[in-house]
Amino acid sequence: MCPRTVVNTTQLSKRYGHVQALRGVSLAVQQGEIFGLLGPNGAGKSTLIRILVGLVRPTAGQAWVLGHRVGSSAARRNGVVGAIVEQPAFYRYLSGRRNLQLLADLSGGCNPHDIDRALEIVGLTERQHQRVAAYSAGMRQRLGLAQALLPAPELLILDEPASGLDPRGLVEVRTLLHQLTREEGVTVFLSSHLLHEVEQLCTHVGIIVAGRLVAQGSVAELLSVPQIHLELRTDDPARTAEILRDYDGVSDVEHINEVVRLTCAPGEVAEINVALIANNIAVSALMPHRETLEELYLRLTGESEDAGR
């Protein structure tokens, strides 16, 4: 069975006065994915999220969430979407629990046990009856996550969900999102600055720069490149470099200090090792280096910014 498309945008653009925040963004997120939206500050991540949750109207293009056009009454009636947009804000004069109750009632109500569960998940059970005014920024972030979980959402749209969380909180949120995706089939669409976090958490990634989506796909797809960088340590680096310069499928061979660096196809690594041993060279270290998400991100954002200049 084909997975259902949960989030779909076509040629989405948004202009605020003279500022073009989004330029023809088309993306698709399938059910069960954890989609991470990456991009520098002002790239358009929050604008895209605001459009998806109906806070902002696009200037051009369309957005569909759970099969309904964003902003349509059907989307409002049937859409089971939990969301956090920027720093979650609550009624400071009400307790955390009362805030959750009120927001859940607005979307059709929920069982008190669901509120208990959401509070337990985010670790606010002890402080649930305290006024939100007394909450720290991290606690408000947790409460934001709790409200997004009420009532059981099919899609979670989270703008910087890790913001304000301590390392333990980060791990808990990561575990929770994995669990929701795996066990309840929830789709997660999140934006983040934390590349390491996104790499660990997300199955799919989109990179947005200056309002344009410059890359989109599964993390594995985006990081699967035809060439890898290889670093070698041998007992005779000079001769190693000399041998490899004549080797088919190897390029950019450099001998720097005791290390030999080169570029080759991933499948060549084992053969290079065999060739060096055959030439009586003892290989002490052979370190293939794949591009990380961080490097991909920096390369793409750098290229896009250069292209924009």
Binding site: G54, R76, V81, V85, E86, A89
Partner: peptide, 14 residues
Amino acid sequence: KSGTLRTLMTRPVS
């Protein structure tokens, strides 16, 4: 101003 309108309008309500 306080941001609660944003929270309110992210709920499935018109």
